[in-house]
Design a binder for these strands. Structure first.
Lengths: 256, 256
DNA sequence: CGCGATCTTGAACACGGTCAACTGACGTGG
DNA sequence: CCACGTCAGTTGACCGTGTTCAAGATCGCG
């Protein structure tokens, strides 16, 4: 039995989630627009995969509750975390090129996701150009975020990566109305390392170091930010090396 | 005076470029579809910027000839190369979220690009869902490519990065009908370093090393691949460390 | 020809990876 | 209830890759 569209907006928890949801526009359209299979919900328990690498892309997903990781699967079967997704985030955009998921998504804790079937998404976009444009924006945002991460992975020191990671999570929770100073990492040290391009030992040591400087308090996976300014400052410091390409001289700007 | 759409398909060089062009579909639509400002051409000379960080996004661009780099601009004004673009590639997708370019694109040699005004692109997509879908595919492909680069930057050794870089360029040229074994890098050592997350000294040393093993021949920026197999094999070797997250156990795959 | 930019190579060093020992939390079964 | 095993995390010691600093070589261009 399939829930009618919009039903998930009926309780308080959902209202929080939906307010921040990247698929909000699709959801709204879904409720008022005639047509086939609509948005449904799905639970994913800790450790379960929302989809695996190689699965056909059936849907786009939006996280309603919980925390998921998206991983590249290496030839030897090892995983590298590419991105992390919390409430309101969209998952599955990288599969649109081939209609097959090139990565896998796994729940770090019990999750609830909204599932928007691709066929339905395309139908909505055909009828409403603004909805199509919205999806393009989501795709483009993802690209911009990837660029940031490349710079992190290529050039920052271990301390900068870890500090940046804590600030990233802090900001993301804050933007959803949760505490920016105290939150749960949900990730094991090894997973943080995988996300940051570091070994778990280095992550552990670096967290201890940040705690020793009283910039954060860490107990297991619970973190409290004590000196956000100091963390930010780390990121502004000169990174690993000076191998950057100099600025462009003004004359070289192409006219018009 | 603006060229009529489709004019660029009239000479042989353009036919090669257009065959591989990511905007081909837009171009074709542009030619037959009524409406406002159409695709035009634009030259960008060595060292000139196609657009700068912060510029309003006027258009999407497709490379017709030449080689461009796309750079993140760091707070201190230094540049880090995010991607490289040759004939047939699209530039400017990361600006769609904000309508402002978050990066800059600079010509590494004299270039010619096709310019598709955003307004026109949106017009075409509204009329033709298939064209909108095509752009989504391009966006999604870009995301998938970014993921690969993250793994490279986070986990590969210097030798793997350089070998991978040479193979990447080789493949890209080959797919456009050019030699896969001999080509011009166009980049300075420093720029290769910026692209690969290495110092220019390390790039230089690594190239010397690959040359000493007779896997490649290098003279300045001209490269000849002598043992593609050996280069590929480097990439298959175990990377820097074992800090990967193990495979999922079968039971944890979520049902349906 | 001479100057600056690019590239190569060498030597020393440092960051973070590697290997290993140990702790603590948790769950299971005798 | 405690012994035991497992798994996550911490910390230490060592070491290797790649960065850093420095000196030349080579190239391109006026």
């Amino acid at each position: 039995m399939q829930k009618p569209p919009g039903i998930h907006a009926r309780n308080a928890r959902s209202q929080v989630a939906c307010a921040a949801c990247a698929l909000r526009e699709f959801c709204a359209a879904d409720a008022v627009y005639p047509g086939a299979p609509a948005i449904t919900h799905r639970r994913v328990r800790t450790g379960e995969a929302l989809f695996a690498r190689g699965d056909a892309q059936r849907s786009l997903y939006a996280v309603r509750a919980g925390f998921l990781k998206q991983c590249a699967v290496m030839p030897d079967g090892e995983r590298r975390i590419l991105s992390l997704h919390i409430m309101g985030d969209i998952i599955g955009l990288d599969a649109m090129a081939t209609a097959v998921h090139p990565t896998e998504a796994v729940a770090l804790n019990d999750c609830e996701v909204c599932e928007l079937p691709m066929a339905r998404a395309e139908q909505l976009m055909e009828g409403r150009p603004a909805t199509a444009a919205r999806l393009r924006i989501l795709l483009s945002e993802h690209i911009a975020r990837s660029s940031e991460r490349m710079v992190t992975l290529a050039w920052l020191t271990a301390r900068q990566r870890v500090a940046g990671f804590l600030l990233e999570l802090s900001d993301r929770w804050a933007r959803r109305g949760y505490s920016a100073i105290e939150f749960d990492l949900c990730l094991k040290r090894k997973e943080m390392g995988s996300y940051l391009g570091l070994t778990f030992e280095t992550v552990s040591r670096t967290l201890s170091d940040l705690a020793a400087r009283d910039w954060v308090a860490v107990r297991g996976r619970k973190v409290r930010i004590r000196d956000r300014g100091a963390l930010r400052q780390q990121l502004d410091m000169a990174p690993r090396d000076s191998n950057a390409i100099g600025p462009l001289i003004a004359a070289e700007r192409a006219p018009r």
